[in-house]
Computed example of a mutant assay.
Amino acid sequence: MDIGIIGLGAMGSAMARNLAAAGHTVKAWNRSGGRVEGVTLVETPAEALQGDAVLTMLADDAAIRSVLLDSGVLGQAKPGLIHVGASTISVAFARELVEAHAAAGVRYVSAPVLGRPDVAARGELNILAAGAPSDIDAVRPLLEVIGARIWDLGTEPPAANAAKVACNMMIAMAIEAMGEALALTEANGVGRDQFLELILGTLFGSRSYQVYSANIAKGDYEPGFKAVLGLKDLRLATEAAEAANRSLPMLRAVHARMTETVEAGLGEKDWSAMAEFTISGGK
């Protein structure tokens, strides 16, 4: 396939590299430039929209709005192009994107991903895909390169974005759960490694607990996913809950705690630093 990439952060670069290595023709645009082996850098976003598909991996709603909508670039896409939106965005903006793509005559698949940069580098992301079945099938060769599994979440693209926001909400809850459990156990003489080994070997052996317990055990919070981005995703979950007229008390609590973590100066650390903030009593 002839694939465009917009956004070459840690995740986008890994995706672009894997697609090029798999034999696809990849052209990428990035606001701050960059270089990825096997990938041709183009000077404008419009040039990235001239292939069979374009994959966007931008930071948030505002970045996508600026690059694709406010600029009018979407209307310059090659006829038949399919846009694969891999970013974590709000459900409300996802609905707006559906309308904007329909107006521009551009096919659209929402495909946010689960996985950190190391998972993206291995091509083992979980892809949450929603859109017209024919469009998903058309970009499946792309998705199969960047992901280990494609989860079909229906024909309405915003469903995939709601699922992604919900997943990130649950990861944040798991981080806070470990922080609160360790605050309790360490105060009563149970070693951190000892308790984490216990929970991983009994009740909580899921990937989120495995990945983030390792950070907490070592006290190493070099960012894989920054706390400030985690706070953004919890805001998106809060907005989605309010729009659905649902009361989510656990979300309110973890959103407040992540806010405190960022305000304490840990925003550029991995979001699992929220557990350390809790263990230390907010110090």
Rank of each mutant, 00 (worst) to 15 (best):
E186Y: 13
G191L: 12
G191H: 12
Y221H: 14
T25V: 13
S134V: 08
G51H: 00
D118S: 09
K269T: 06
S134E: 15
G9L: 11
A62S: 11
V98R: 10
G23P: 11
A275H: 06
T259H: 07
H101P: 00
G281W: 08
M169W: 14
A187S: 15
L203G: 15
L266W: 15
V98D: 10
L143T: 06
S32I: 10
S272Y: 10
V106W: 01
P117C: 05
L231I: 10
A100W: 10
G189L: 10
L200N: 15
G265Y: 13
G123C: 07
A102I: 01
V84C: 06
F93W: 11
G7S: 08
I146A: 01
G115E: 00
A48F: 01
A20V: 08
Y209T: 06
M11Y: 09
A227H: 13
V113T: 05
L97H: 04
E260P: 03
T202P: 08
A53C: 05
L8D: 09
S110P: 02
A243R: 08
L69G: 06
F277E: 08
T44W: 09
L97S: 05
V73R: 01
F93E: 07
R149Q: 14
L182P: 09
P157T: 13
D70N: 02
L69K: 03
G72N: 05
G205D: 13
K27W: 00
T259I: 04
E222W: 14
S71C: 04
V139W: 04
I279N: 11
N30P: 08
S32C: 06
Q50T: 00
V98W: 08
A22V: 08
L203A: 15
